[in-house]
Design a protein around this nucleic acid. Sequence first.
DNA 1: GAGGATTGAATCGCTTACGATACAAATGTA
DNA 2: TACATTTGTATCGTAAGCGATTCAATCCTC
Lengths: 152, 152
Amino acid sequence: MKTDGTALYLENQLCFPLYAASRLTTKIYTPLLKEFDLTYPQYLVLLVLWQHGNQTVNEICHRLLLESNTVTPLLKRLEEKKLLQRKRSDKDERVVQISLTKEGEALKQHALSIPDKLINAFADETIDETEIRNLQKTLFKLIDIMNKKLLP
Amino acid sequence: MKTDGTALYLENQLCFPLYAASRLTTKIYTPLLKEFDLTYPQYLVLLVLWQHGNQTVNEICHRLLLESNTVTPLLKRLEEKKLLQRKRSDKDERVVQISLTKEGEALKQHALSIPDKLINAFADETIDETEIRNLQKTLFKLIDIMNKKLLP
DNA sequence: GAGGATTGAATCGCTTACGATACAAATGTA
DNA sequence: TACATTTGTATCGTAAGCGATTCAATCCTC
């Protein structure tokens, strides 16, 4: 064990840059999503539904790695915005099925412009495409490892 | 612009893995920090103070890339725990100086074991050391770019 | 088929996060 | 020296996040 304290320096940690980068990306998204009256987590829920179609609460939780106590209120807010519907399953009364409304489905066409807007925002930056792909790959690997560690 | 929607897939985004990895790392830290009755953001504040000594609220905000409306209540909670003191500067009444108490300073020695505990938790995982360093480097680069974008 | 274990969603309480804003202290400028 | 501007911190309101727990529906085991 290092006892000089350098192991505790912010620059030597992995968690801090993850934490900061995550918050900053969300902050970059905010003005883009505001046009659609969405928050970033709400946008993530819609991404799941656009990509995978109707989902149960549980499926959304697993795909986003969130707990039901986070997702439930999130879904209620999206329901209030008329973007989706919540309905108990007939087969299993415990399950709540989430389905997009017409409006929620239609929003996808507008959202398609978001990735390009982000790319344009960074057009003047010299970020290596490969570096970003590697970053993404390592992150998914890390997520996988941590997720397994955290399973009951 | 891609119109097939694949650009909206979770797997093709950078923001989502950042967001998920950040939350999962925090979750990994939680049981370790619980021994010290600390949350992860509270731990970050202490890291700054251990590393840089007495700081103003503003300095802490800048080092952690957080807003004052997040940091102020955080500092109040740490003050309640007797880990630090808040005191208005004499020279400039607007400035609040944060200093560690004896207890806060002493906690550092115990916290030194945290990085090793994390490493041990992942000892059986084949995470390439270089890959982690690269990840860290890319993250700091990204943070730098985004931070500049977001400045007023 | 009774009775305990499990599961899916939700409730509660607490702690972040942050946009918008307030407010006093300090600074700049006419 | 008045007065507008800037700066540092804090307040308010809202939305996440999550641990702990609840509760009903379902499953399992005998």
